[in-house]
């Protein structure tokens, strides 16, 4: 690990610290310290934000709930209100990592976690995300865990998390404070980026900005499922995951929202899928149509080709379960 200066402010006034080149925030640290040990991350200044508050879960005026950026994943998943009214979020968080890691991992930090691409984490290999302009080693390399949607020759890394996938399905909003203390809100569906020409940028946070919380809209009810397909049944990243919030009325789907994890540089959400499901009667043909919409532009890079049929089977299984269809 490279040497760094350590600072621990007791309020959001630390923003000026972030204007310094090389300053990085640390909250739970479970991803950042791992990457610092590998010298993938080499901050000159580490700003410890664990004692600035932002650790409450509070109802909003609109019937939703606001989760402070420093609420731990464990606390969020165990919160009785989240379990009762937004169970999809509890399910997704509990599907990830281990008890120890969830105790440290935070709501804001989890949104900002980096890819687990083998080449990103190995400083001896070219990687456009870690060192722009050096090339993508995964494109023609080991890419079993890599993206099949929205990728390009610059970067085929995936966003690896679970929590955010549920937040995409639930249409959450990320609250952000800036260096001048002005705040802005970004729909979580617009928070993460596709690689495009700037694969080094995972999300839309600007220099000096800090996530202060995540707001979930009022509960949508219905059936909420998080299906995670992985190499072992616990404590592993997803190969494909699906968050589904779906409501049935009189034999038809009255409301649907699906999001997909570990398939792209960001959790994947396609409005056409939600629209195709809404108002429709469950059928195998409908579920195939949804899979077609999801995968029409899917592209494998060799070792990850299997993710395309895996995603088709998984989305159909999730929709059968969520609608109670016997097909």
């Amino acid at each position: 690990m490279r040497p760094f200066d350590y600072q621990r402010p007791d309020g959001l006034d630390h923003a000026s610290l972030l204007d310094r080149d090389g300053a990085t925030l640390i909250a739970g640290g479970t991803n950042l310290l791992d990457l610092m040990k590998l010298q993938v991350e080499t901050p000159e200044t580490l700003v410890d934000i664990n004692r600035i508050g932002l650790d409450k879960i509070e109802p909003t005026g609109e019937g939703g709930i606001r989760i402070g950026a420093l609420v731990s994943n464990s606390t969020c998943a165990a919160d009785p209100r989240i379990r009762a009214d937004w169970p999809l979020l509890s399910r997704a968080i509990l599907a990830g990592a281990s008890g120890q890691l969830r105790n440290k991992a935070t709501t804001g930090g989890n949104l900002c976690q980096r890819t687990r691409c083998y080449y990103f984490m190995n400083i001896d290999m070219p990687c456009n995300k870690r060192e722009p302009g050096t090339g993508c080693s995964a494109l023609n390399g080991r890419n079993r865990i890599h993206a099949v949607l929205g990728a390009n020759e610059n970067c085929i890394a995936t966003y690896p998390g679970d929590m955010a996938v549920a937040m995409y399905a639930l249409d959450a909003t990320v609250e952000i404070a800036g260096p001048d203390k002005a705040s802005r809100s970004v729909r979580v569906r617009d928070f993460h980026r596709l690689p495009g020409e700037r694969p080094e940028l995972d999300n839309v946070l600007e220099a000096g900005e800090v996530i202060t919380g995540v707001t979930l809209p009022a509960p949508v009810g219905g059936t909420q499922l998080y299906r995670k397909v992985r190499e072992r049944s616990s404590y592993a990243f997803a190969l494909v995951s699906i968050a589904a919030a779906l409501r049935m009325e009189e034999g038809a789907i009255s409301r649907a929202s699906l999001a997909f994890g570990s398939m792209a540089h960001k959790p994947w959400h396609d409005l056409r899928i939600d629209a195709a499901l809404t108002g429709a009667k469950p059928s195998d043909a409908l579920f195939d149509h949804v899979a077609d919409l999801l995968l029409e532009d899917a592209e494998g890079y060799g070792e990850n080709d299997f993710k395309i049929p895996l995603a088709r089977r998984t989305v159909k299984a999730v929709l059968r379960e969520a609608t109670g269809a016997s097909t």
């Binding site: 350590y6 621990r8 640290g29 479970t30 310290l33 410890d48 008890g99 120890q100 890691l101 105790n103």
Partner: peptide, 15 residues
């Protein structure tokens, strides 16, 4: 009272 991985946290963060 909470379990964590002590390898992924800094001593200086635990005043």
């Amino acid at each position: 009272g909470q379990r964590i991985n002590s390898c992924l946290t800094l001593a200086v963060m635990h005043e």
